[in-house]
Amino acid sequence: MKPKPARRLGEVAARAGIRIPLIVWSIVVLYPLFWMVMGAFKSNAEIFASPWALPEVFNYQNFIQAWTDYNIGTSFFNSLIVTVFGALLTLLLAVPTSYALERVRFRGSTFLYNVYLAAMMIPMVLGWIPLFFLLMNFNLLNSLIGLILVYAVSQVPFSVFILTGFMGTIPSELEESAAIDGLSPFGTLWRIVTPLTASGIITVTIMNAITFWNEYFMALIFLQSQEKYTLGLAMDYINSEVQYTNAWGTLFAGLTISIIPVIIAYAVFQRHINKGMTEGAVKG
């Protein structure tokens, strides 16, 4: 039986009502990024003469200048170091904590879990001054190691909140079987529970890594020398220099370099992130 024309017209209108706003919003979001990338390949004369046009010749000099003259290369690797090691340290702290809170019942576990939840609601800005003096006392100020520690600790509550949801979906019979086979609690965690929560771990890792890569204010407070700058600080430095040097193409090139890893990471792991957020939404 064919659908009635009025019903089919209503379905088309409903789909258009959903898709058209999404298309418009996508254009609004993507066009500034496209404009920035195109500006990275233009000379200053082209940017001022025709800011909205495509570059006449794709010039890579802006990328070279940003990478060398403005130390984007050093800042890129600094950001890479704090992002990778910060994300790994967060996992090392959050995975055992989540397992203990969710699967190992002990007195005060519920209270401790609520403490982690409450920590997510405390603005990080309230801890910046105490952390500054704490890092200074331990000689970790102006140090990538100190920044890694701050990043990791700041994301542990969020990571615990996400991972406990995943671990709650694992049947307890698997752990009982592992205990019968002679596995210790740590063996059960790393050999049974961790592989089964791979989607959650990937989700938490990518979200934390993106947070660390884009973070600006804590790096501004805890890093003081230019050779320790992360990409956020390097971009701010270039932006402050642009008003005197008119190196807009270099600024756009630096911004393009800084967003490429985030786009690649999200494109590669998008399916895992979506799967992880839906699987961890229901606690078994």
Rank of each mutant, 00 (worst) to 15 (best):
P123Q: 08
G39S: 15
G284Q: 06
I148W: 09
I18S: 12
T194L: 13
P21G: 00
S258D: 00
S225Y: 06
R271H: 05
N59D: 14
R105M: 08
A49N: 06
T256C: 00
W213Q: 01
L147H: 09
A66K: 07
A219K: 01
W190F: 13
L233F: 01
L22C: 08
A152Y: 09
S79Q: 02
G276F: 01
I145Q: 06
V12C: 03
E175G: 12
A209S: 07
V193P: 05
G254D: 00
N114Y: 07
Q155Y: 13
R8G: 03
K42N: 09
Y31R: 03
N139W: 01
F269K: 04
L196S: 07
A87R: 07
I81S: 05
E46R: 05
W67K: 06
A40M: 13
L9A: 15
F252P: 03
G73S: 05
W67Q: 05
I206P: 04
Y60C: 08
T90N: 11
M36L: 12
I162Y: 12
F34H: 12
H272P: 04
T205A: 10
V193A: 04
E241R: 02
F111V: 14
T230H: 00
F269Q: 02
I64L: 11
I18K: 15
P195F: 04
T245C: 10
I47W: 01
F77V: 09
T97Q: 03
A178P: 08
E227V: 02
L126T: 15
N239R: 09
V125Q: 15
R19M: 14
